[in-house]
Design a protein around this nucleic acid. Structure first.
Length: 366
DNA sequence: CACCCGTGGCG
DNA sequence: TCGCCAAGGGT
């Protein structure tokens, strides 16, 4: 860090660039000098933006702010409706964290210090720093993946996350001098528009003159890619069980994958030879719906959907419940289960039951 | 610290 | 088609 040039001077050219090229985003204040007029909007945007791209977030943010315009409206809302407004955005725990944070803030008021902000559910070191700098103008650097990449190239660091503490110390004077909210968001815009992953657009970069990686011709090898574990492979039946116009659904779980959301019953199918239990009981119609591969961060699912109509309801555990068709349409679901819901509405699939171990699938409900 | 948690866009 | 990875946090 001793060999790094002073941050206020190095980053000063960012401001005129940001003035003309910076993004206009729905949660961003017009005046970046003072405190943000609506810290709640910053909180909502930051939670939505965790591991999620800006273009994905924008429509969700706008619908959210129309329905839950302030802390109180969110605090008092039905949790299922809250999940409904998060439906499709992913990492659903964030929605429940956000409502829990709103409940705490609406009664206790806003803290401003990162330490205190970090005690809010769903708010970690990054988000606390983002709130402190963007909402409250405190000179606390918020380092996300974007910033790590920009700073890694600027200072030629192969593993910037290993220098987190040093980078925050180094960056703080730039925030204090040039404006916490402005510098933070200018760096984010630079990372999103110019210093992008892969091949950056160095010819238009306002910091090109100071960039050590560009000087070394090494801007694509910085930073080193992050190592990720291989996804788990899973194959499962996704069961749309229909009885007298009602559908059997799995109640939301407290934790784990797709927690808080309604799901279709599922039954692991990987490894089975498909020869046992293939007899279809009388009074049962089976329809296979074209499957697909569902990709999650740490999981790769081969989904085999089935539409099964029964004349009498099979025994099932209390974690399942029958819902009407209109109720089904209103329940919050993840993309996978939404997809099956839509396929049913569209009438996709064909009658077939070869190799479907229906007996085993139905018995897995009990 | 290792692992878990969703989804979509892009090369 | 496939791997990367995005304004991370919780346990």
């Amino acid at each position: 860090m001793r060999t790094w040039p002073s941050s206020p001077g190095l980053l000063a050219p960012l401001l005129p660039w940001f003035e003309t090229r910076g993004r206009r985003l729905p949660w961003r204040a017009v005046d970046l000098e003072g405190e943000h007029p609506d810290p709640y909007a910053v909180l909502v945007s930051e939670l939505m933006l965790q591991q999620t791209q800006v273009s994905t977030v924008i429509p969700y943010f706008e619908a959210w702010m129309r329905r839950f315009p302030d802390l109180v409206s969110l605090a008092e809302a039905d949790p299922e409706e809250v999940l409904g407004h998060w439906q499709g955005l992913g990492y659903y725990r964030r929605a429940r964290h956000l409502q829990a944070a709103a409940r705490r803030l609406s009664s206790g008021g806003w803290p401003r210090e990162p330490r205190a902000l970090e005690r809010l559910p769903g708010v970690g070191p990054y988000t606390a720093a983002a709130l402190a700098s963007i909402a409250f103008q405190l000179p606390v650097p918020a380092l996300d993946g974007n910033l790590y990449r920009v700073l890694a190239r600027l200072l030629h660091l192969r593993a910037p996350r290993a220098h987190g503490a040093s980078l925050r110390t180094w960056l703080a004077p730039a925030l204090a001098t040039l404006g916490p909210s402005r510098v933070t968001q200018a760096l984010m815009d630079l990372g999103a528009l110019v210093c992008v992953p892969g091949t950056p657009n160095c010819p238009v970069c306002p910091l090109a003159g100071a960039c050590r990686s560009l000087a070394k011709g090494d801007q694509e090898g910085i930073p080193l890619p992050v190592q990720r574990p291989a996804p788990k492979e899973v194959e499962l039946w996704l069961l749309a069980l229909e009885w007298r116009g009602r559908w059997l659904l799995s109640r939301p779980r407290e934790r784990g994958l797709l927690s808080g959301l309604w799901r279709w019953p599922e039954s692991l199918s990987g490894g089975g030879d498909g020869t046992t239990g293939t007899q279809v009981p009388s009074g049962v119609q089976v329809r296979e719906i074209p499957g697909w591969v569902q990709i999650y961060t740490h999981r790769r699912e081969r989904v085999r959907p089935l539409h099964v109509r029964v004349a009498s309801p099979p025994p099932h555990a209390e974690s399942f419940t029958w819902v009407t068709r209109s109720r089904l349409a209103s329940l919050p679901m993840g993309r996978r289960d939404q997809r099956l819901r839509k396929a049913l509405a569209d009438g996709d699939g064909s009658d077939s039951c070869s190799g479907v171990p229906l007996g085993r699938i139905l018995s897995s409900l009990a």
